[in-house]
């Protein structure tokens, strides 16, 4: 079986699903063993935020990777990656509302209005909701062309996510800049000329690995 064939198996999908659960499993293990450090709530907030960004970037890497490799079957897993990004974003949001603010909704509202990094983070989360709701096959059919237009929102969401991270760190911008750099590459890969270039490389790569 070639790579293309393997990518389209149920085993691959299951493996990917389990891999996506790893960050959550890690948090649970650390929580049970007292490994979350001195400030567990900060640890959980950071971790779920990190994995939301990773999920978004993985989702956005599917199309460039497909063009580069010619493995069209990759697209079948994009929805799952996107939904995992939403799942970790929800955990991140719940951590903030529950563990960090303890349902002090007035304080949450003040934060959203006053703190730019929370404003953009909240906006990114809200914008993810319609994408998650319309991720089903039925919704894709119902929305037709408009589905793709709607789901282009993810580009803006990822940019807001990087801004959220950039504006929150105290001084060391290394981490958010890494995420920003990867995002810039993935968005750049969508420019028509670059996309064409990637596509041009596809057959060679595919035949070598196939």
């Amino acid at each position: 079986m070639n790579v293309q064939g393997f990518v389209s198996t149920r085993a691959f999908k299951l493996g990917l699903f389990i891999l996506c659960l790893f960050p959550l499993a890690r948090l649970v293990v650390l929580a049970v063993t007292g490994g979350l450090g001195a400030n567990p709530i900060e640890f959980i907030t950071r971790s779920t935020g990190t994995w939301t960004m990773v999920g978004l970037l993985l989702t956005l890497s599917v199309t460039p990777l497909r063009r580069l490799t010619g493995w069209t079957a990759l697209v079948r897993h994009r929805r799952m990656l996107g939904l995992f990004a939403f799942f970790y974003a929800s955990l991140h949001f719940v951590t903030y509302i529950w563990l960090d603010q303890f349902f002090d909704l007035a304080s949450v509202a003040r934060d959203i209005v006053k703190r730019p990094f929370i404003t953009v983070g909240f906006a990114a989360f809200v914008l993810l909701i319609p994408l998650a709701l319309t991720s089903t096959q039925a919704m894709m059919r119902r929305l037709g062309r408009r589905w793709q237009q709607l789901h282009r929102l993810v580009y803006g969401i990822a940019i807001l996510g990087v801004l959220h991270y950039l504006w929150l760190v105290k001084q060391d911008l290394t981490q958010p800049l890494i995420y920003g750099g990867v995002l810039a590459l993935l968005l750049g890969a969508r420019l028509p000329r670059v996309a064409g270039l990637l596509q041009g490389m596809a057959p060679r790569v595919a035949s070598r690995s196939g």
């Binding site: 709530i41 304080s107 006053k114 703190r115 730019p116 504006w167």
Partner: peptide, 10 residues
Amino acid sequence: RWSQARERRI
């Protein structure tokens, strides 16, 4: 960038 009204005691 953030409020100083409250704190988390470790």
